[in-house]
Simulated assay, not measured.
Amino acid sequence: MVRLLEKRQRTGSVLTIFAIASFSLHVLVLLLFIFQGLNIRQLSLRKPPNFVQLIDGKPVGNIDDLAREPEAIRRFISKTMISMFTWSGTLPPQNIEEVANPKSDLGILIRTSQGSSQKISTSTWIASFALSEDFRKGFLSTVAEMTPPEVFSENPNQVMTSQLIIKRVYPPKQIAPGKWRVGMVADLIQKNRVGGEKLVTPFNKDFLVRAVDYFGNPQADNGTDLQKAIYSVRTDKLEIYEIRNLCLLDGYNNLNEDNLKQCGARQTSDSFIK
């Protein structure tokens, strides 16, 4: 009887130790899961690393989230404005077949300040996502008013095209942390595709640009070509939040603070101002 009691006590002690060890192990695993969950949450809330383009086009990490390379800013302005004001009546080719036989651009209807609806090119609409949201709507309304309806004409004898020829983009001048002013001298050339008649309009503008965050397309693999194009516009982590007429008092070579102050009185009502 005594031996039987001792055996039961030993068995109970082993079970108790096993239960305590198992409970401790479960608590430890739970703590590890909590710690790992907190780390994952911190990673999900962390901003994506900021990249800027160098002159050779290679992205490098930058410690300052608001810093951008001057050449990257100038390329951003040039690329955006060329896409904004190049109207060919056709869509950008997506494959080799469309290079030879491009699809017609049906345009996108935009309501103008007069209350009517006019078309802008699809490339203009996509490029407009490089503008700040509060400035974009009014700017598109202005572009719609200056876009000839003949751009979308089905009659080949009436089709007009437009191209922005950039002569110079001035070095960006920082006006605040993460904000720059960039002057551009260009000509907007509208041409009749058949007759070859040209209309050249000076397009000299002063751009106010700022650094912004960028979040990638969460459905990059399943997105349409249009969605991918829109997201690609924001990859430069820059946006234009104001456009003014650029006053050139001394040719194309003198863009200083004194001249810009004198130009302030010459701004007209047709300026692209927010």
Rank of each mutant, 00 (worst) to 15 (best):
M1P: 07
M1C: 08
V2L: 14
V2I: 14
R3V: 10
R3M: 11
L4R: 15
Q9C: 10
R10F: 00
S13L: 14
A21V: 15
F23Y: 15
L30P: 01
F33T: 09
F35E: 13
Q36R: 15
N39H: 14
Q42N: 14
L43R: 12
S44H: 06
R46M: 07
I55H: 09
D56Y: 01
G57Q: 11
D65F: 08
R68M: 05
R75F: 12
R75M: 14
S83K: 11
F85C: 04
T86P: 02
L91W: 05
P93D: 02
E98K: 05
D105A: 07
L106N: 07
L106F: 03
S116L: 06
Q118L: 11
Q118D: 03
I120W: 01
E133I: 05
F135M: 07
K137R: 13
V143W: 06
P148F: 02
P148R: 07
S153L: 06
N155H: 07
P156W: 10
M160G: 03
M160I: 10
T161I: 09
S162I: 00
Q163G: 03
L164M: 02
I166D: 03
K173W: 03
K179W: 04
W180M: 04
V185L: 12
L188M: 12
L188N: 13
R193I: 15
G195W: 13
G196P: 07
E197S: 14
F207R: 06
R210G: 06
V212H: 10
F215Q: 11
G216A: 12
A220I: 06
A220E: 12
D221W: 03
G223K: 02
Q227H: 01
I230P: 05
Y231H: 10
R234C: 09
L238F: 05
L238V: 04
E239R: 04
Y241Q: 06
N245R: 07
D250V: 02
D250G: 00
A265C: 10
T268P: 06
T268G: 12
